[in-house]
């Protein structure tokens, strides 16, 4: 049996078009060996969840800077449950105040990265959370 790389879907949810962060992260994850599926701007939670299921990803990374995180993240979590796909890990990044980070964690969002997080911290997180067996190949 072959190994497969970690597959992560990255998405911009909501209406804001600030894709600098999601692109930098997508590129860094690719360079670290992840197969990144980028779904682009202005995605709805339903589009993201459906794409994640079709792409059979291990995790969803959501970037969101518009302030709507307390509406959109819970919707993603709800839809994943509805599709019996709770095993897909959700993490995110954006302008999220600390009390909201706690609230999102309580909802099952695995990790929330706030401004100033280094790329390395995110790559390390993905490695820790998703990459276990067979690391070091290549």
């Amino acid at each position: 049996m072959g190994r497969r790389p970690v597959r992560i879907l990255t998405a911009k949810v909501g209406l804001d078009g600030h894709d600098r962060g999601v692109k930098v992260i997508s590129r860094a994850l690719r360079d670290a060996g992840v197969e990144v599926i980028y779904t682009g701007l202005h995605q709805t939670p339903a589009q993201v969840v459906e794409a994640a299921i079709q792409e059979d990803v291990d995790g969803i990374g959501i970037s969101l800077l518009s302030g709507a995180h307390m509406t959109l993240f819970p919707e993603v979590m709800r839809l994943l449950r509805e599709r019996h796909a709770e095993d897909i890990v959700v993490f995110g990044g954006g302008i999220v105040p600390p009390q909201d980070v706690e609230a999102l964690r309580a909802l099952g969002v695995d990790e929330v990265f706030t401004p100033g997080t280094s790329i390395q911290a995110i790559v390390e997180y993905v490695d820790r959370r998703f990459g276990h067996v067979g690391a070091g190949a290549g």
Binding site: M1, V6, Q120, A135
Partner: peptide, 13 residues
Amino acid sequence: GTQLGTVLVRSPY
């Protein structure tokens, strides 16, 4: 560059 050389590999399907 940064040290991003680790290849992340998941367990077999």
